[in-house]
Design a protein around this nucleic acid. Structure first.
Lengths: 195, 195, 195, 195
DNA sequence: AAGTAACCGAGACGGTACGTCTCGTCTTGCG
DNA sequence: CGCAAGACGAGACGTACCGTCTCGGTTACTT
């Protein structure tokens, strides 16, 4: 994140091996066993190589998750805001229920006592996706599908919050399937006043 | 939580000192420095005394928070569901911004990789409060203030999720002050169809 | 050497296992592979247990050697100073050629850059044996077998120095067998002026 | 020592800088801080350049010491063997008490667990000086100043051993000043039988 | 009232992972 | 191709806590 060493000389091989090892170890032993030592061992890499480029385990995991997700979570725009949101939120909920979710929850947990990681989490993971959602919502507002008297960011919060709430505090995956109902309900509060 | 030793012989003095020490250490050094050793040292207690009565640091912290909150977070019922919810959610958000919140976030973090703690968290912290909220919402439904075609628990989720979302992922405390707006907006989606 | 923790609660089992492990590892892999980690692993002991009672690897090794030697290197007194010195020096040279010697040389090497260890080495290993030798030489001086105008400590230096010289810088064990000749020669310079 | 690369293309500038850097680092931080990395940094040289031409830190240090000493420690021959030996041994003891001695002791220490370095040490440092001393002693024997029934090498051992003994195991530099007394005493044992 | 059981404080123990240090090798331009 | 520079795989360092395990000592029931 804040590399003092020369990034041009960085070994791509090592970087890949480290990011992949995060998933390998998490899948094999659970996120609780994801330690810097375990990552280094699984990646066939020395510990200093990890510490050279990342400040903490959470930062590595965050990069690993970002790398794995890539641009795959792009926002759909079919013109139907309800359908698009349902699709997107379902996709997010599904992702957070699998391997990625296990690691992602660990990152959020670690960020509770690591302000730097929390900032990185918001900057690299949340903010870009929030921005894309904001753009989609703005389009919907312009199309008269959503009320205009509410900041788009607030709408995003209301929409995404239940997904995180259930991932972090919920009992099990079955509940996350109610996303469509949630979206529909929340949208009722977001529809234009005239509707 | 599952004490083999005889609870009748338990030292109340030690229990109090331990629960208080959680806050003392968290306030002095941050939750990251709250370790069993630090708690024992601050409480003037041996480590086995802690392990005798609690299975993990998170369990101690959870008891400490529950002990500190007590019944102070009871749900108001003025007849005006919007006012009651706003009051309650603001109270929760305020609490989660102070010392208690620091520890509470740590407990949630720890629960991500400790299913037992997660269960305790839900059973002793969330569920009772959800139940009280559900009762209040049921009354509001009966009074025709809220739509009846949605399970009360789902409404609770939608209402509380943004608070947790901001506490766990938000940028800062200022944002949490928007709770009233959130409640109003969400309630729009929860009003009776006829309204 | 300077134990902060309470020595009364010390585990004799662990102490024994650690001292024995030094020899075990040194015999199996050579003194170069004697690390704190290797000692801990071979002794079935945690690293902190070693660091709790010893300040460095060399200090552990010194204790191990002292423990192994015990009082076995006592000085003989048959009345014949030449025979006694030859016997003693041969015994020392023999000991320093075996397992103990391997470790002992390592300790001396480590002491070159660790003044504390050097002091311990002199205080626990060299000085007591020098004192015993001094006492024997004083008796020989009193018996008129050695010149009286030379401090006994200087005689000790002259007698022992070649043994260490060969152990630390010599080519091989065969040379150390010349001790009797050395003693005889050196003694020529130590005989009473009248002789 | 065993250079695979072409010695003709070797950079004399780098060689000089490396040998000087050994003393520079040792003087500034002590021999304990003399690492290959520190030498390379102080010399403004890449680590591989050192590894290309020397097998270990000790080998570099040995070359540095040999380079520094040069031929300055030549053996005097005034005809008076006692005076010559005293002069020479005092010179050696003095040298081993200064900067060179610090490094030299480190080399001896390292040689305890590095047979190759030990061999180099003997071949390049000890043996030539022993040979010169042997020649001087042989001359003294021929002149009837020393007994003839003892190999000159053994005499060398007896004479030099105390110096090394004190450097490597002694308490402090003050003791090394007694060299003249030592030499005189030892010589008593080396004088011709007829004397 | 004495005996005894169990909790208490204290802290040493066998471990795991930490983050750092140095090693000796490998890789990459520059001259 | 030797060089300066420095990233790399490896692994030991000394530290922090973990959770377990003795230890006396001090209550607080039992008989």
């Amino acid at each position: 994140m804040t590399p003092q060493p020369n990034p041009e000389r960085r070994s791509e091989r090592a970087r890949r091996a480290i990011l992949d090892a995060v998933f390998e170890v998490a899948a094999a032993k659970g996120y609780g066993k994801v330690t810097i030592e375990a990552i280094a061992a699984a990646a066939g890499v020395g510990k200093p190589t990890i510490y050279r480029w990342w400040p903490s385990k959470g930062a590595v995991a965050l990069d690993a998750v970002n790398d794995r997700i890539g641009d795959s979570m792009d926002f759909p725009d079919t013109g139907d805001i309800a359908a698009d949101l349902t699709a997107q939120l379902t996709a997010v909920a599904t992702m957070l229920t699998g391997d990625i979710g296990t690691i992602y929850r660990g990152i959020i947990a670690e960020a509770q006592s690591d302000p730097g990681l929390a900032a990185d989490l918001r900057a690299t993971m949340l903010e870009p996706r929030i921005q894309r959602c904001v753009r989609r919502l703005d389009a919907a507002v312009a199309a008269g599908q959503l009320r205009a008297d509410l900041p788009a960011r607030t709408m995003v919060d209301i929409l995404y919050a239940p997904v995180y709430y259930r991932i972090l505090l919920g009992a099990g995956p079955d509940e996350t399937l109610r996303s469509p109902l949630l979206v529909r309900t929340v949208l009722e509060g977001l529809r234009p006043a005239a509707a």
